[in-house]
Design a protein around this nucleic acid. Structure first.
Lengths: 150, 150
DNA sequence: CACAAACATATTGTGCGCAATTGAATCATG
DNA sequence: CATGATTCAATTGCGCACAATATGTTTGTG
């Protein structure tokens, strides 16, 4: 082993990558019963938190996703009848996304998903919170590194 | 807020998802200079640790990826001249993956990537290790949940 | 007011991830 | 030793992610 820093199990990136995919996959299994994917669920989470429509860019800031991902995703949510998209009359560059009645009605069914998962993952609330805080810190430092490169 | 468990910033899954993508993206930027993607780099990490060829399935166990992801990825690495694939004569169902000279030569250039990233992320070795341990625990519990469902 | 720069979203192209299916090789059981 | 079950890799189909580009809108400057 000439380069110990290249060991798969010694790098932070791999458990982060693998655990992220594993958790996303579990969500996906539960969400498929609602006809949703995990990123679609995240977009709805952001919309459920607000009473006002949201611009695509604001949704992107919240989810850390760009229009290349969000545009087709929102088109699928619109086709599914869960959201509506329309140009912002105040600024025709923007597109506002708002929930339909069906989109709002989905919240109640979705509320069971994180509850049933939280218990399945065998973590206490405290553990989950600590891990979450560390990941937010990591996210912040990676983002400032990325913006410093640009 | 009728369902507090649906708040984006209160769920573990979101920072895990966002931090995972952010870290993968940073790796991708550095790896693009080597003509590699992040999952391709992971596959090479696993191969560099061994002197013997590896079956596709063993590579999948190490990276937690299935043949649907690995088959086309390995085909691209083969096209790039970094690996060779051949049927295992002992068991013709298996395909063995082995490094070419060019694949082995890539290790030296790749060794700089985690080193330069480790310093950029502003974490101590200890912090990275603790976070890594927690993520492996989470990965384990998600995987046992998944296998219990099957 | 003209018009260049900046901005917001959409589109294109490539490479994952993953569920489901396919096809070939091996194993296990009678 | 036959044959049904299992295993392994590849393929198919769909939905992300993300870089790069395109298109239309607004803003800032002279």
């Amino acid at each position: 082993m000439s380069y110990p820093q290249l060991r798969l199990d010694q790098q932070l990136c791999f458990p982060l990558y693998a655990a992220g995919r594993a958790v996303t996959r579990v969500y996906g299994l539960l969400l498929s019963e609602l006809g949703l994917t995990y990123p679609q669920y995240l977009a709805l989470l952001a919309l459920w938190e607000r009473t006002e429509p949201m611009a695509v860019g604001d949704l992107g800031s919240a989810l850390k996703l760009d229009s290349g991902t969000l545009s087709p995703l929102l088109k699928r949510l619109e086709t599914a009848g869960l959201v509506l998209r329309r140009r912002d009359p105040q600024d025709e560059r923007r597109v506002l996304v708002e929930l339909t009645d069906a989109g709002r009605a989905m919240e109640e069914r979705a509320a069971r998903v994180p509850t049933s998962l939280g218990s399945a993952l065998g973590m206490t609330q405290t553990q989950a919170r600590e891990l979450s805080d560390q990941l937010y810190e990591l996210l912040d430092s990676v983002e400032s590194y990325l913006s410093a490169q640009a």
